[in-house]
Design a protein around this nucleic acid. Structure first.
Lengths: 150, 150
DNA sequence: ACTCAATTGACAACCAGTTGGCAAGTGAGT
DNA sequence: ACTCACTTGCCAACTGGTTGTCAATTGAGT
């Protein structure tokens, strides 16, 4: 029944809310010893994953948040010496943002911690289940984005 | 490989972050016409789901947030006339919180909107996939909570 | 070159959650 | 009855995100 479907989806949504909270909390815990937060970690991750320096709006898109939100974290991290601004030949006002040497070192540490932790969390859950879940979540997100914007 | 597992889990985590944002945004959109927000909607849902009036800390537990966070929403909604305080014979300081008549009417509307919306979102995704996903997410959350607190 | 819409960074105000501290209420042990 | 740990409501400060406004920059159309 379609009524049934909405019930399952409701439970999934509530679980996602809870998981989001738990994950941020766990993430903050994981990086606390390195004086980081989940938010800053994610900014570093976005730049690292891109493999090149990005502008603040590009980081925002990569993270799925607003440019102002990303900018806040970037400004803070530049001030802390974790990131550095490179003049952007293509845009005078919008510098490219990269990890500083310190930032790169810190991120390397954080990534090792994360991989260990994630592997530990994943043990006992079949790869197949994880893949299926990822796939279904992506499908939901796709439909969500199309629905909202359409 | 366990390295592979952590990669899948990383993608799942990032998708959950994104989904959380999208869902809150979509939720705010859904209830905007009723002058509600996702947060207030969730509080109403917690009380309705319980089938009885709850104290603020009980609502917080049900929502998986801190008591102060729940209290903020409750205080606001009492002020708006969506919820009412009932004297708690078991605890002088901690009144039971229930939906007012207005609140119940509003929640009924919101629930109808949500069920329609959720069913539409779920169509095209097999029930089986949704159930599997729910199950796996719950498993992850369980392991997460045990890990963090253990 | 000029114009005008879009992008961008800075700033302010706000929302929803967190932590921490305080005073009042509760209840179990003695 | 007393004590002491715990719960609870309120308050303030903080974090991480949002929206909105502004001025500077950019670039495409003319």
């Amino acid at each position: 029944m379609s009524c049934h479907e909405s019930e399952i989806l409701t439970k999934i949504v509530l679980t996602i809310f809870r998981l989001n909270g738990c994950l941020i909390q766990a993430g903050d815990e994981l990086v606390k010893s390195l004086k980081l937060t989940s938010a800053k970690w994610q900014v570093m991750g976005a730049v690292t994953l891109a493999g090149k320096a990005l502008t603040a709006p590009q980081i925002a898109v990569a993270m799925g948040i607003t440019r102002q939100g990303a900018q806040k974290q970037v400004n803070a991290m530049v001030k802390e010496g974790l990131m550095i601004l490179q003049p952007n030949s293509g845009h005078k006002r919008s510098p490219l943002i990269a990890l500083s040497e310190l930032g790169a070192r810190v991120y390397e540490k954080v990534d090792r911690i994360w991989v260990d932790w994630a592997n530990q969390l994943a043990t006992g859950i079949p790869d197949h289940d994880l893949l299926e879940t990822l796939h279904t979540l992506e499908k939901i997100r796709e439909r969500l984005v199309n629905n909202t914007r359409g």
